[in-house]
Each structure stands twice: as structure tokens, then as C-alpha cells.
Design a protein around this nucleic acid. Structure first.
Length: 497
RNA sequence: GGCCCCAUGGUCUAACGGUUAGGACGCCACCCUUUCAAGGUGGCAGCCCGGGUUCGACUCCCGGUGGGGUCACCA
């Protein structure tokens, strides 16, 4: 896996990283994380850190890399320049490469002409035929040359692709390409080959966008007399709009999903199923299970569209399967960040922060948080949704949202709530079953359907029309706050609209 | 335009010559129900087109069509 540290890593790149990792782990091989930072303008070390963080968050580790080192380092291209120079010399000495003195302007002109003629651009080869005298003459003019690869004519390059099978690529479609700039910096296709050779890379698994790079790289291997690694090109991941996930386009960064409350094991499970299925068709798999089943010949060739709806569904499913306390632990950071509960509750009862509360909030310990979170467990799809779903439990006061306010102002609701306030004020055992019994008895006494009593109470107590079951909610909220909110709602309901 | 890749419901996919083309998301209906969910049941919806090969094609071959990639002193 060799990203360039020029920005946050999106789902598409992470997807091929995952497949690389899975393949390496399944095969018992090494997974290497190196950086392609020869584009100094766009590269930034802070993105390296971002990539580490996101990989680790997903549970993808690496055996060799810029941070952990390894036997074939360094693992940044910018630190491997002498190596490229050495291999460039080898190619020059063997005559596979020649100096090119053409200026950017001259090349632009060639390209423009090809464009105009509706032809694929190929370098004219002007400098290829230069003899020693001609070269020396141009050199004496002070023009530093770039190094071009002399592509052999009439050859068919064969790619034996691990996912696509055999691909025949006519070398005549390939222009004499530059491997080293006049300033000595290697170009991508050349640097990659040198890295892959010197790092003893056995398998190159990358996106299908690289298919056209592969034959030029194979040409370099052949010129060097080095054995080829195995190539495998997996399909791209597309946005729902069917656009390709480009580096800066779209907003499919892994970190964004983390912030929205998608869980790492879900992202991994979901990405694995994009272009791959286990033989038994299971949809829910842990990382070790995926490793055990993974193989490249079950990888689809066609690109696949990333469906956020299905991701949400899967995340919700995982949330429901979690132990309640574990879910609470995972929700806690979101609640703390939202200012609903104090930090430091993670350790459970008696932990720092227990019993204290941010301004305007009800003090909560871990047990209370877990209780409340449990009520929403089958109602939220992402961890972040815990905040709007439960904020009324933590706030001292609630103001009804628009539909709730409307419901409270309906005819007779004031009276109903007045009755409810009085009746529930008598209840001593503030647990769900007794509360429900009292509620149903009240409805019967008033000659109303349960719904006509419960909905106004719900609006009064939660400030909204949708919530967990009313009596569970009242029990978790507590007697004092519940009665307080009922009483306030009476006034609200009776006030002239 | 040349070259290369790809093609099963809206989406993710199963099928590796013989199935009423299976599953999942989403959508619709119904059930459950104090709301919202969750859950249950049922439903709508697909092999891009045309030729071959074969007793028999979603599966193999060829040609179209459509989509994508690539043709840099970017990676």
C-alpha cells in the first residue's frame, strides 16, 4: 500500500488498502505502508499521521513502514533518491534509456498537434535517434536532459492479472516515457518499480485505474532483467452519483464517518463486501473471519457504488448487537462533546466526573448513562445520533418542538395533563410496570384511549412526539423531573395559543 | 479518436452450461404497537442488445451498445 500524503484518505483508497491487508494476512505475508511523496508541492507530513490514525482505527496494522521501519527502508520516496539514481544509471548503461533535450514548450507543441489530429499523443522520438556528437552538442548548450525510456516497437505486454486474468497490451500504444526529470527527480512509474524491486514486493494490488500503468512498469522490469511481481487490479468504488472518489471530490473520508458515529468494524465489514463476498454469502463478518475467507478470485471486476443507506443499516445492526454497557462506552465521547454529560465517566461508578454535570444538565453517573443509552439502542443508526435522541434526559429543562407544542395545545389536553400530574404525583414506586398500570387506569377513568393520554404526556416529558416507551422513559428520567415537566406542561397547554 | 477494462433489479451481490435466476439494502403493504423504532409476513423490481457454439445458455465465442480508465517533466 503506497498512498501519497497529499490529503485525507477516502473510502476508495481505504478499500484497496483493506484488500491488500486482507491478502497479505491471509497469505501470511507482510503488509507494507510506504509513501509516494515525490510531489513535494502537495505532500505534507501531517497527512502521513492522518493515514496512520485512520488505518489503526480500522484495525489495519503494517509490518514495515516509515514509522516502524523495516529491512528495506527508507519507506518514503523522497528519502530513496540515491536508489533511483542507481537504477537510472543501470538503464542508461544498458541502453534502455536515452537523454532527451526537448523543452516543455517543444513537447507541448507536439502534444497540441496530436490533439488537433485527433491522435493519441506519442513522443516524436526526436532525441532517441541522437548520436553521441549530437548529444554532446545539446549538452554543451547547458540544457539538462530528462531521461526517456525507449519503448520497444511491436511488442505485446502481457499482464497476468490476479483478478482479471490475462490482459494483452500493445506496447505501440505507449509513448517513450520519461523516468527522470531534468532536475533528477524520478517519475512515478519508475520510482514504483525501483521500490517494488528493492522492497521485494511480491504482490501489487491496486485500483483498476492503474491498469494502464502496469505495462509501462513491466517494460521497466524487463529492461532491468528483474522478475515481475503479481499484479491484481480491483474495481473502483463509486459515489452514489456514480462519480469516482477522487482525492478532493466528494466527502467520503474515513474520518468523517468516524465523526458521524460509524464504528470501525462496520466500515471494515462493509468495505469488504464491496466487490467481494464470502463463499457462504454471510453479510456480517469480523475482521478475522474476513481474513479466513478472503481470496482474490472472489473479487468482482466491475466497479461498485458505495451505498450510504446500507452502511447505515449495517451500523444500526451492529449497534443493536452490542452489549448495552459497551454501547454506552462508545456513545460517551459523543455525549461529552455535546456537553450533555461530564467527562471521565468511562470507568463506571465512582469514576471522576460521576455525579457532576455540565451547566444546565442533570448529573449522571455511568449507570444512568447506560440506562438511557439502552433505551435508544434499537432506535439509533449511528453513535452520534445518541445526542439528539437522548438530550432531553440530560437537560434540566425541555422546550417542546413544534409538533409536540401543537399536540400540547390540542383541546382538552390541559385537563388530561392536570389529571396525570395529580395521579402520578401519588405514585411512589417509580418503575416502568407500576407506572404503566397507573397510566392505563388513568386513561380508563378519563374514558380516553391510552394514546390520547400517553401522547400528551410524552410531549410534556420529552418535548417531542417520538421517544422510547413512555414509562421506561419516565422511570429513567426520575420521579422529580418527570412530575416537574408534567406540571409545566399543564401551564403550557392551558395558556392561550 | 487509439489502446485497455467492465456489464445480473435503483444499489451491493450469488450463480462458475440444466435453478420458478437466490440473498441483502432501499421501497410498498400488512401484522405487532402508547409514539418512534426494532421485529415478523408478503410484495414490486434484474440476466444491455444481436448473432453464433451446444440437446440446452446469465454463464462459452464474436460483433454491437453503454459505462469507466488512460494517452504528462501528476501520483
Amino acid at each position: 500500500m503506497a498512498p501519497s500524503p497529499t490529503g485525507p484518505i477516502h473510502i476508495g483508497n481505504m478499500h484497496t488498502a483493506l484488500f491488500n491487508w486482507l491478502f497479505a494476512r491471509k497469505a501470511g505475508g507482510k503488509f507494507i505502508l510506504r509513501f509516494e511523496d515525490t510531489d513535494r508541492e502537495r505532500s505534507d507530513a501531517k497527512y502521513e499521521q492522518l493515514i496512520y490514525d485512520e488505518m489503526r482505527w480500522l484495525g489495519l496494522d503494517w509490518d514495515e513502514g516509515a514509522d516502524v521501519g523495516g529491512p528495506y527502508g527508507p519507506y518514503r520516496q523522497s528519502e530513496r533518491l540515491p536508489l533511483y539514481a542507481e537504477y537510472a544509471r543501470r538503464l542508461t548503461d544498458s541502453g534502455h534509456v536515452y537523454p532527451c533535450f526537448c523543452t516543455p514548450e517543444e513537447l507541448d507543441a507536439e502534444r497540441a498537434a496530436a490533439q488537433k489530429a485527433g491522435q493519441a499523443y506519442k513522443y516524436s522520438g526526436r532525441c532517441r535517434g541522437l548520436d553521441e556528437a549530437g548529444r554532446r552538442k545539446l549538452e554543451s548548450l547547458g540544457r539538462p536532459p530528462s531521461l526517456r525510456f525507449a519503448v520497444p516497437a511491436g511488442q505485446v505486454v502481457v499482464i497476468d492479472d490476479l483478478v482479471r486474468g490475462r490482459i494483452d497490451y500493445p506496447a505501440d500504444a505507449i509513448s517513450d516515457f520519461i523516468i527522470v526529470r531534468p532536475n533528477g527527480m524520478p517519475l512515478y512509474n519508475f520510482a514504483v518499480v525501483v521500490d517494488d524491486i528493492t522492497m521485494r514486493i511480491s504482490h501489487v494490488i491496486r485500483g483498476e485505474g492503474h491498469i494502464s500503468n502496469t505495462p509501462v512498469q513491466i517494460l521497466i522490469y524487463q529492461a532491468l532483467g528483474e522478475p515481475l511481481p503479481q499484479f491484481g487490479h480491483v474495481g473502483h468504488i463509486l459515489l452514489p452519483s456514480r462519480e469516482k472518489m477522487a482525492k478532493r471530490a466528494g466527502n467520503a473520508y474515513v474520518g468523517l464517518y468516524r465523526d458521524e458515529g460509524f464504528m470501525p468494524e462496520v466500515i471494515v465489514n462493509f468495505m469488504a463486501l464491496l466487490g467481494w463476498t464470502p463463499p457462504d454469502g454471510r453479510e456480517f463478518l469480523t475482521l478475522p473471519e474476513i481474513v479466513a475467507e478472503f481470496s482474490l478470485d472472489r473479487v468482482t471486476k466491475a466497479p461498485s457504488v458505495f451505498d450510504p443507506d446500507k452502511l447505515s443499516w449495517m451500523n444500526a445492526n451492529y449497534i443493536r448487537r452490542l452489549e448495552r454497557d459497551e454501547l454506552a462506552r462508545r456513545c460517551l465521547p459523543f455525549l461529552v462533546r455535546a456537553g450533555l454529560v461530564a467527562g471521565g465517566l468511562e470507568q463506571g461508578p465512582g469514576a471522576a466526573g460521576a455525579g457532576s454535570a455540565p451547566p444546565g444538565m442533570v448529573p449522571s453517573d455511568f449507570g444512568r448513562v447506560a440506562w438511557i443509552v439502552g433505551l435508544e439502542q434499537e432506535r439509533i443508526e449511528t453513535l452520534a445520533q445518541i445526542v439528539p435522541a437522548t438530550d432531553f434526559f440530560f437537560r434540566r429543562e425541555v422546550t417542546p418542538d413544534e409538533p409536540a407544542a401543537k399536540a400540547l395545545q390540542a383541546p382538552d389536553v390541559g385537563n388530561t395533563l392536570e389529571q396525570a400530574t395529580a395521579t402520578f404525583g401519588e405514585v411512589a414506586d417509580w418503575t416502568p410496570e407500576p407506572l404503566e398500570a397507573v397510566g392505563r387506569a388513568l386513561a380508563e377513568r378519563l374514558g380516553l384511549s391510552p394514546k390520547l393520554v400517553f401522547q400528551p404526556m410524552r410531549a410534556a416529558i420529552t418535548g417531542r412526539l417520538a421517544s422510547p416507551p413512555l414509562f421506561d422513559t419516565m422511570a429513567a428520567l426520575g420521579r422529580g423531573l418527570s412530575l416537574e415537566r408534567l406540571a409545566r406542561a399543564v401551564a403550557f397547554a392551558k395558556a392561550p395559543a
